[in-house]
Design a protein around this nucleic acid. Structure first.
Lengths: 356, 356
DNA sequence: GGTGACGCTGCAAGCGCTTCCAAGGTGCCA
DNA sequence: TGGCACCTTGGAAGCGCTTGCAGCGTCACC
């Protein structure tokens, strides 16, 4: 039924060994023979059997990608980049989503990637020590995106730098009272983003000689709803900020909503900067810190492939970020927050009267 | 180095044949033996070699999923559902993204899934005839999500019904002048969503006895920017609509932005309904038509697995939708677009069969 | 006691490749 | 002309499983 290497060999009048060599571009095959083999293969519509091939070589030409959720924009982008890079090098991408507690447990328990892949890519999964050990036990080239674990290659963004760029942007606009909506620090240790972004925030404030006010740091739990709550609480404080740096775009979205619901306007009353450059950021005109997302997938694959070729030891990449200035940031108004529009009932007159 | 079935056999004191049968739960193995084998396997941390196994059986226990983009919310969700369902049945998921023209061409030309997968899942890819032929040539169980092709299983939503539900919602609120922002009809024939949604729109209007005004149908090309342009043009017409049905949430988002930029308010001045229940729809408080997304992946996998077991011929699923009412729809103001009056009084003029 | 039937197990032949090793040719130099 | 190095090619042994077929006790029943 299916055509095998033997059929090709017969048709080309050579041995299977030669077919194998010819088709894979190995040296020590005369050009003439190679052509004949290629023709035969083409004529028979021959495709090598991956299982036979990997049984013989021990290599699978497949990389396992472990990701919490595929549905989230960020992961989708990274996977996309990784897939392209892998495909280009002749590798397949086996997907494992381990977002649900149950599936995660099973993944690290059974390690279904064993014998199935040549290398592993772990995306933004803060791993417990046991999980790290499990992965290490695979003895496969492994790269992490978004978290750094000793012994593995990793690709991360410059969280500290990104955060201070964002805050500097606000400072340059003239803001002095700048709040931060952060993510909770409850995650495993390798997930350093919240802490790093906080460091960036603080260092920007410090080098501008601005006061540090701990009441301006509120937890938004990295969710939209959390960002909304955080912003609401900031707005209702006795001395609200004129600008807010949110550690993620989703929290920034929530903040925007809170601002709107409070009858205030952004950026006239409060400026907001996010972090990520989420696909919706543009639509909401959110100033934010952009990170190259797809590229991180590509870089991670690069590490993996290099290790696979034995060319490189595990190494870390820190990719740069840049601030994308959009419409949610502006200089503070002269008299910050004084004449507060009565929220709720009176729909903001922004549209008709003061538009522009 | 790696432990093979032979090691397990030796340790359990049986033949490799028995190990194979015992571990796979085949009958004709005494419970005692099975236990011994299991223990040996566990003790040696044995994992069957997928390549050896599939070389021997011809089955790969892998399903190829072909998708235009992973980064888009909808696809991510569907993949997620499919992955879970597959994993549960012991299948792996091989991902192929063919969004880019180049990668798409290569995919259908080389058909890298050949010999690699047992079945194929094609997500929301309107295929050309040649592409359909290529897939058919694989002679593998195949299911489509979002498009229906004769000969293949498919899972789609009820576009006609969804659209008319959306429009009925507007009609029930009292709207009489309802526009539609649609997607261009330039795609291959199987991509029937635009046309079906138009049919739903028209039938809802018709059964409410409302006029059909072709100037109220504008193309938004299924993009945010397109939706914005379409809405802008509607707003600037001499007789603008009081409500708009957008064939996708993204276009609806664009419409919202156009409304805001025109200094108008939603829903006070114009109501907007979208389609999809995009993850951002909630954040933007958009009334929309929700479809079960993850579930479509699960259903498609169901079809595939059934075919794989030889249990079923290709069949179609039409999954229902429902309107999610949020804040972008409200009864029209009494005197549309002229003076702004609180829009309470008109609340229930739903049944009015009077033609406008 | 003979004889199937039946349950459990092992033998061994593949599955379709890759690769080590040896063999045959060729050309070149001594 | 013989010897040698080098380039091509083929033979054949696996890689680690699955599975058809046969063997062998056991039983039940004639």
């Amino acid at each position: 039924m299916t055509v095998s290497i033997e059929d090709v060999a017969a048709r080309a009048g050579v041995s299977t060994a030669t077919v194998s060599r010819a088709l894979r571009g190995l040296p020590n095959v005369s050009e003439l023979t190679r052509e004949r083999v290629r023709d035969a293969a083409r004529a028979l519509d021959y495709v090598v059997s991956p299982s036979a091939s990997s049984l013989a070589t021990g290599r699978t030409s497949t990389v396992g990608v472990v990701v919490p959720y595929v549905g989230r924009w960020f992961f989708g982008q990274v996977i996309s980049g990784a897939e392209t890079a892998l495909r280009q090098s002749g590798f397949d991408l086996l997907l494992y989503t381990v977002g649900a507690e149950e599936s995660r447990r099973r993944f690290f328990e059974e390690l279904p990637v064993r014998r199935r892949v040549d290398a592993v890519l772990v995306l933004s999964l803060p791993l417990t020590d046991a999980e790290v050990a499990a992965i290490a036990g695979l003895r496969l080239p492994t790269a992490m995106v978004g978290a750094s674990v000793p012994g593995f290659s990793s690709v991360r963004i410059d969280d500290v730098g990104g955060a201070s760029k964002a805050v500097n942007h606000l400072i340059n606009l003239g803001h002095q009272r700048i709040a931060m909506i952060h993510g909770a620090g409850i995650e495993p240790a390798q997930f350093t983003a919240p802490e790093d972004r906080r460091r960036g925030y603080l260092s920007a404030l410090a080098s501008a000689g601005l006061d540090y006010d701990s009441s301006l740091q509120v937890d938004g739990g990295f969710t939209l709803a959390g960002g909304e709550r955080a912003m609401a609480s900031l707005l209702s404080s006795k001395h609200p900020p004129t600008a807010v740096f949110a550690q993620s775009d989703e929290m920034a979205f929530g903040a925007l909503r809170a601002i709107r619901r409070a009858g205030l306007r952004c950026p006239e009353d409060v400026s907001v900067v996010g972090f990520d450059d989420h696909e919706m950021a543009e639509m909401l005109d959110l100033t934010t810190v952009a990170q190259p997302v797809t590229e991180q997938g590509v870089l991670a694959v690069g590490h993996i492939l290099a290790e696979l070729r034995g060319e490189a030891a595990p190494s870390d990449d820190l990719v740069p970020t840049h601030v994308v200035i959009r419409g949610t940031t502006a200089p503070p108004t002269a008299k910050p927050m004084r004449a507060r529009v009565p929220a709720r009932s009176v729909a903001r007159s922004a549209g008709s009267s003061s538009a522009g």
